[in-house]
Simulated scan of single mutants.
Amino acid sequence: MSFEIKLPLFEGPFDLMLFFIERDELDIYDIPIAKITNDFLEYIHTLEKMEIEVASEFILFAATLMKIKSKMLLPRPEFNEEGEEIDPREELIRHLLEYKKYKSVIGQLAEMEEIRMSKWNRGNVVDELKKMSRVDDVDAEMQDLDLFKLLKIYQKVMFKFASRSDDTTHTVIQYPYTIEQQKTLVLDQLNNQPIIPFTDFIAMKPDKIFVIYTFLAILELLQLSLVTIKIGDGFNNFWVEKLESIPVETL
């Protein structure tokens, strides 16, 4: 026994919206946002249950529908420059009408393409005569050969040979730091001074790898709730503060 599940495929969120409008015979100028939003979300949930990846544009469109729905529920209408109340659905309707117009044109172009593909192309007489007069043999190729072409070919061959002969080497360097070591270092410094600017750690050893490992160690201590950070003056420094005195051996 086997079963088959078929889901309609849509090229985009606007295509899905037009399907709902045509299916339920809705007025495109007076879209019931609540119903359309529920249908849209139900379709997305169906795809998720079938473990089908939902495109980001569908998720963004669903969020836009919910935003429009929330605006319509709020009793705070917006007005344009002429003092007329702005319908939150206005922009959505405009995009839908535009998409519908281009979709109808694309359908007509697809029909024209299908008709055109079913016809035979008339031959290009000049092109056919050139192909017939072309002689594909060694003698014809040697007639167009000159010293410049020979040098270019020689240069390409030598370049390929040189690139093949150069062996690629990789050097693996083991850094003399670990996250655990830097965590111990940070806590030792905080035992002597409860709050330390990060620039002091940089000044201890102005080495790029040392600074990176120290910064990662501070992040781990922050996650373990052993330290906290405070933003200092400007955006290029922060202060590291110890929350409580815990022996280093517990790490």
Rank of each mutant, 00 (worst) to 15 (best):
M1G: 13
K6F: 14
L7D: 12
P8S: 14
F19I: 00
I21D: 06
E22V: 00
E25N: 09
L26H: 03
P32H: 01
P32T: 00
H45C: 00
T46C: 08
E51A: 01
S56K: 07
A62Y: 06
K69D: 10
K71V: 02
K71G: 04
M72G: 03
F79W: 06
G83E: 05
E85Y: 02
I93S: 07
Y99A: 04
K103Q: 15
S104M: 07
I106Y: 13
A110Q: 13
M112A: 13
E113K: 15
I115D: 06
R122C: 01
R122K: 13
V125N: 13
D127P: 00
K131S: 11
R134Y: 15
V138F: 15
L150D: 07
I153R: 15
Y154G: 05
Q155Y: 07
F159R: 12
K160S: 12
K160Q: 14
D166A: 13
T171P: 00
Q174H: 12
Y177N: 05
E180Y: 05
Q182E: 15
L187Y: 11
D188R: 08
D188L: 05
P197Q: 14
T199I: 11
I202W: 06
K208A: 13
I212C: 01
A217C: 08
A217T: 05
L219N: 10
S225P: 00
T228Y: 07
F238N: 01
V240A: 03
V240F: 00
E241M: 09
L243F: 01
S245C: 03
